[in-house]
Design a protein around this nucleic acid. Sequence first.
DNA 1: TATTTCATTTGATATATGTCACAAAAATCA
DNA 2: TGATTTTTGTGACATATATCAAATGAAATA
Lengths: 189, 189
Amino acid sequence: MNILFKTFINYFSINQQLTEQTKAEICTHLSVLNLDKKHILIKENQYHDFAYFVIKGAVRSYYLKDGIEVNTWFAMENEMVGSLNNFKDKPSRETIELLENSTLIAINFKKIKPLMFTNIQIANFVNAIIEDYALFLEDKAFSSQMLSSMDRYVLLLDKEPKLFQRIPLTYIASYLGISRETLSRLRAK
Amino acid sequence: MNILFKTFINYFSINQQLTEQTKAEICTHLSVLNLDKKHILIKENQYHDFAYFVIKGAVRSYYLKDGIEVNTWFAMENEMVGSLNNFKDKPSRETIELLENSTLIAINFKKIKPLMFTNIQIANFVNAIIEDYALFLEDKAFSSQMLSSMDRYVLLLDKEPKLFQRIPLTYIASYLGISRETLSRLRAK
DNA sequence: TATTTCATTTGATATATGTCACAAAAATCA
DNA sequence: TGATTTTTGTGACATATATCAAATGAAATA
């Protein structure tokens, strides 16, 4: 099996042992992509059949508010990117763009989804991915409701230091929900 | 089968037909509760084995920030309440309290969870609940990042008008992330 | 390397919202 | 019912952050 596929599969099968057959079945719907910076993976308001797993590189997802890009997250090594809306057969809410030349695994969930009703291992595999995402969203909601701008900045710096090495502060400010000027002033302290 | 159990099960099995046997298996781990206003269902920082489905009544979930309660959501008829953290064997982040005398279904997910690895229908049933929750969280993150206080208020009023009939504005303000005075002023317009 | 574009910082000002204080209204309870 | 508690509304003021403007610094490109 492709070593990169293995990385992806292992990442979301800590709770259960997958048979070789199931792994092979999942792999049928995976492919490796090497894409350049600025490539658009997923477009806002469109239907897409794929989610992605970052092997190497960085991506951001954002949507437009009154013509201004609002960044919602940055994914790097060993993180999933995609739209839950797409997974539920609805148009994507966000645009997903590469911030670096990246290696990704494309996951054809349109093909994998129906297998959830026939292969119990796949059902639990997909479930692990979605649970993971829900926990991420909970954290996000928590910090946006509970914390001041300063505290959100400090928390992000603590939990995701690599963001600050690889992602422009303008994007990070937008993610934190503050203007880039305010972020700059917070950092000065 | 208990008619209330049926309501709950039907609610999360639109995507698949459950066999009578599976339904019976799920029901083994359900029970109906009638509890009074102010009862605490789940306590912050504690481990709990149950999630709940509201048949009738209203609950709120909140956590403490510097001694002040920050409301994170209000559930009413046909909504789930619980802590994803508890589901993942971690202590709850929130406290969940009844706002009205309510009828609830208690779901012993500690017992149901292992069945996900042996009963594919149950795996997909639980998955439907978690997907639902993730979509709710996405909406929440979206509106908190994209919308002004005023727009969040208008959106909530439009999508959940019954909240405003049954939940004190103080709690709603806290949920919207603004002071009760500001909400009062927004409403005056 | 020089030139252009993009990212970050800093200053001045405007604005939305928080905070404190108190009054009015509504709900709850004895 | 009357008394007490809770909820909501309004005013005055403080403060954090947005916005606008401009300068500096860094990175990309010819």
